[in-house]
Simulated assay, not measured.
Amino acid sequence: MIPSRARVLHAGAGFGRTTTPHCHSRTANVLREIRCGTTNTTKRWNASPKPVGQQAPESVTTIPGPSWLWLEPIYEPFRAYGRVQRRRPYMTQFVSSLVIYLVGDFVAQSIGLPAEVVESVDGEDEVEKGWVQAWAEERDWARTGRALLIGGAAAVPGYKWFLWLSNSFNYSSKTLSLATKVTVNQLLFTPLFNSYFFGMQSLLTGMTITETVERIKNTVPVSWINSCKLWPAVTAFSFAFIPIEYRSIFGGVIAIGWQTYLSLLNQRAAAEEELEHSHEDAKPLSIRRCEDDSGRDKEKCAA
């Protein structure tokens, strides 16, 4: 049977049909989608971050900036002092007190050193000395030793006093607490310490009890009045802003100038007392005229 024309055309159409190849690999699917224009893939932006090199920390800078790293050399000695203070408070206070009194005495002797012209004997020229030797010979080392003894003996008691004061008079009002601490320190500690300082200076130089009491009367009231101009502000600032382990070194820096003042005041009082005693020892002779019974001969008589 001969197929009809319609069947032949249908069969031809069937043989000429092309089919889409079926590929199971990913590459084939991508190629097929690109060829057919039916790709559903979308471009992924920032799919993986770009490699970034390791950056230096912000604190590592070569130019001083807001991080204040350039102050580290200044901070480190104070941190070391705080660590030593926490481990050995008494020894730290003792050594600090010796340094404060030593520097204060040197400054006081330099300020109060009288300008003396040393005359050579028999008109011979004075041998030129180095500045170290001249400085050492101009020092009153006995006076320096007295200052170190007084400062070393008062180091631990003074530290315990301020430690007790820090732990006492703590009220709900910070202003009231601070004002009470300053008042108690100014009324009790300052006059007692000044009396101890001037009294020990007098006793160590060989003065009697009466002379020592006189020295205290001549120096303590003046020193207490002048201390009211300085130490209340220093004490208030110390208790308000300075940590307890750094209060001694903060007060010690101020105390160098204060010890210089006390030493100068003591020397001035000693000079005034010596001058007053020298006037008392020189007894002037009162001159009177003596007349005999006749009233004719007159002579001078010393009473």
Rank of each mutant, 00 (worst) to 15 (best):
W258Y: 07
W258L: 05
W258R: 04
Q259D: 05
T260W: 02
T260N: 00
T260Q: 01
T260V: 02
Y261M: 03
Y261R: 00
Y261F: 09
Y261S: 03
Y261V: 03
L262K: 00
L262W: 00
L262E: 01
L262C: 02
L262D: 01
L262H: 00
S263K: 01
S263E: 04
L264Y: 03
L264E: 03
L264C: 05
L264P: 00
L265M: 09
L265D: 02
L265W: 02
N266W: 01
Q267H: 07
Q267I: 04
R268C: 01
R268D: 03
R268F: 06
A269S: 06
A269F: 01
A270S: 10
A270M: 11
A270W: 03
A270I: 09
A271L: 06
A271T: 06
A271H: 06
A271D: 06
A271N: 05
A271I: 04
A271F: 04
E272W: 07
E273T: 01
E273Q: 08
E274R: 07
E274H: 07
L275V: 04
L275R: 08
E276S: 10
E276K: 08
E276Q: 08
H277T: 11
H277Q: 15
H277F: 14
S278M: 08
S278V: 04
H279D: 07
H279N: 10
H279L: 13
H279Y: 11
E280G: 01
E280R: 02
E280F: 03
D281F: 13
D281V: 14
D281M: 15
A282W: 06
A282P: 00
A282G: 03
A282R: 08
A282K: 07
K283H: 06
K283P: 03
K283E: 05
K283R: 07
K283L: 06
K283V: 04
P284I: 05
P284A: 14
P284R: 08
P284D: 11
L285W: 03
L285Y: 05
L285P: 02
S286T: 10
S286M: 11
I287Q: 14
I287N: 12
I287M: 15
I287D: 13
I287E: 15
I287P: 11
R289E: 11
R289A: 11
R289Y: 10
R289V: 12
C290D: 11
C290T: 13
C290V: 14
C290R: 13
E291I: 10
E291H: 15
E291C: 11
D292W: 06
D292F: 07
D292G: 12
D292L: 09
D292A: 11
D292I: 04
D293M: 09
D293A: 12
S294C: 07
S294I: 03
G295T: 01
G295L: 01
G295V: 00
G295A: 05
R296Y: 04
D297G: 06
D297H: 12
E299A: 15
E299D: 12
E299F: 13
K300R: 14
K300S: 13
K300H: 14
K300A: 13
K300V: 10
K300P: 09
C301W: 10
A302R: 11
A302G: 14
A302L: 15
A302M: 14
A303S: 12
A303R: 12
